[in-house]
Design a protein around this nucleic acid. Sequence first.
DNA 1: ATGCCTTATTTCATAAGA
Length: 256
Amino acid sequence: MRLATWNVNSVRARLPRLLDWLTTTKPDVVCLQETKCSADTFPAAEVAELGYATAAHGAGQWNGVALLSRVGLDEVTRGFPEEPGFPDPEARAIAATCDGVRVWSVYVPNGRTPDSPHYTYKLAWLAGLREALAADMATGRPLAVCGDFNVAPTDADVWDPALFIGSTHVTPPERQALADIRALGLNDVVPRPMKGDNPFTYWDYRAGMFHQDKGMRIDLVYATGELAGQVRSAYIDREARKGKGPSDHAPIVVDF
DNA sequence: ATGCCTTATTTCATAAGA
């Protein structure tokens, strides 16, 4: 199975690039984040022409997640029980069973600043996600939770750790929340960069950050043990971050 | 301290992103 995850920063704005990328990369299952559209405006017909079934979860201009699959898309769940909201739950999680693998696409709240209520919400949401994953893993199926976690797991995952001290994405509570999720029995599948040493997945649009490789690794693939043991390769598709009209995130592609 | 860039929107200005 070829599994990918990509924060597309609007699936409609990115549609031509997404279709090209699907055609050349040929993933079996794709986790999308920041689709920024409702389920009924998701371009499902366009991806269906390439052989993909769609399950989307969205509610307008912000957030939004989706799953595309050409190997089955069953037992779809949107959100999770007792999902924290701001104040109401947002479209940040969707899961499905694809060829026997339980796949989650998640878009973790940004948090803004550590003194913001959005930060408290972020930590609560990650704790809630942990409980939902624990419940889903009780079935014993292989599982992968993929997406934009908005947390850089280590200092090596940001281009300048000194610059990030005191900022969201690197604080100990956020990193602990990720560690608590891994402690369920999930393994960080670290993809290799196509160029350079840094496994970054996000670069700000501004100030030529991508070209200077001033980025962050905040998009993650966490897989249960047996599945992680079957990883043949994992890479960050930096080509998709180049050129005209890219997302600010690059896709991660994992072959099992 | 802020913009740098890009998105969507009851748009020609704002909120949000990370």
